[in-house]
Nucleic acid binder design. Structure first.
Lengths: 213, 213
DNA sequence: ACCTGAACACCGTTCAAGT
DNA sequence: ACCTGAACACCGTTCAAGT
């Protein structure tokens, strides 16, 4: 017997985010989400055309958590840096959503708030529209790639054998001496520190080029 | 009746890469791959512990396609730039493998060849080991993020409505005027040009900082 | 419009068995 | 070691039907 479930797009997406946070992206099935919401899997198609759209909505919820300062009293560089630290924070709180960030850009009003704030800060600093677009693309690439490296512990086991046993220490040392030397340094890096180092570097360069024209 | 299939880890991985290239990552199932190879799905477990390991092996094949110059007669900056252009090329030829690049770093001898070459170029240029590690992390983050933005056409439909109809042009213009202005500029960017612009910027900054100590 | 159960065409992986 | 078929516990989505 069909009944009203009282669901909305937002409620479904929020429950989905919970599910992803606690059990990972693969655990987000329409069947399981339906069960969590006390509805049939098919009820979800009332709110989302397919699983893809649901994933996109979940991503928007994470973007919406990024803090978007209303003014930039601290100056454009510090404002943009603060926004990007907040982006990193949001995806560290929701690490399983990160793979979706590269697929779905911010689209909703709430999700775009931090983008607007960043644009405004650069605009007030005298950066022209075309240069802002370039800066945003660069910073988006750096943020996404950087967060993925951090969340996936990309350098944590960089020199592991693969297939098992085929790359032992002596072989590595003989054929790839530089990799053997740098590998441990990568594994020992501090994620937060490296993120800031790279962010400063990119931000400095972007603002200097924008100013010198 | 069981029979010899003549398969090897490499042959299975290569067929898997073909499958992914032509039909996408989701189409790579053990059942379908087994059928393509004239074997039962279960035969593949002889060569890979699970689907994850197979995906990792596919990723290594793409890394191995990156050209690794044996000397850097053109200078360290041009050498590193060349390597990163080649990384971009490899993943543009295998776009469906890109999501795996952020999960699996290069691990095999062949896959690590370009990393070794890049390290060597920076090392010869007098960059110290710790600075090389920082540079590699930054460049890896930028390359992965940048390629994902390009492959996924991240900015192609940046201002699309979501959920459908909720973000019409007047609403966008009123609440997010900067987004409304910059959005079209992002959609019009040339991928190759922006990649090089950002790469130069990062590379300049990295080498300048490395030199000034 | 909102919701349902049944059905279709799939999955990865375990297991017992064969050579 | 290498390979098999059957079985288990799942998937997303379509469809016909109900309110």
């Amino acid at each position: 017997m069909p009944h009203r479930t009282g669901l909305t797009q937002r409620l479904v997406a929020e429950k989905a985010l919970q599910l992803v946070d606690t059990h990972g992206l693969d655990a987000l099935s329409l069947r399981r989400l339906g069960a969590d919401l006390g509805a049939s899997p098919m009820a979800l198609y009332t709110y989302f055309d397919d699983r893809e759209r649901l994933l996109e909505a979940v991503t928007q919820l994470v973007y919406a958590e990024v803090s978007a300062p209303v003014d930039d009293a601290v100056g454009p560089e510090a404002t943009v840096r603060g926004i990007l630290e907040s982006v990193r924070g949001a995806f560290l709180r929701h690490p399983h959503v990160l793979p979706l960030a590269a697929r779905y850009p911010p689209r909703t009003l709430d999700a775009l708030a931090f983008v607007e704030a960043g644009y405004r800060a650069l605009s007030r600093a005298g950066v022209e529209a075309a240069a802002i677009a370039r800066a945003y693309r660069m910073l988006a690439a750096y943020s996404i790639g950087s967060a993925e490296i951090e969340v996936n512990k990309y350098f944590g086991e960089h020199i592991a054998a693969f297939p098992s046993g085929s790359l032992d220490a002596p072989t590595l040392e003989r054929h790839l001496p530089q990799v053997a030397e740098i590998g441990p340094l990568l594994a020992a890096q501090d994620d937060a520190e490296e993120f800031r180092y790279g962010l400063d570097l990119v931000l400095d360069a972007v603002l200097r080029r924008a100013a010198s024209r």
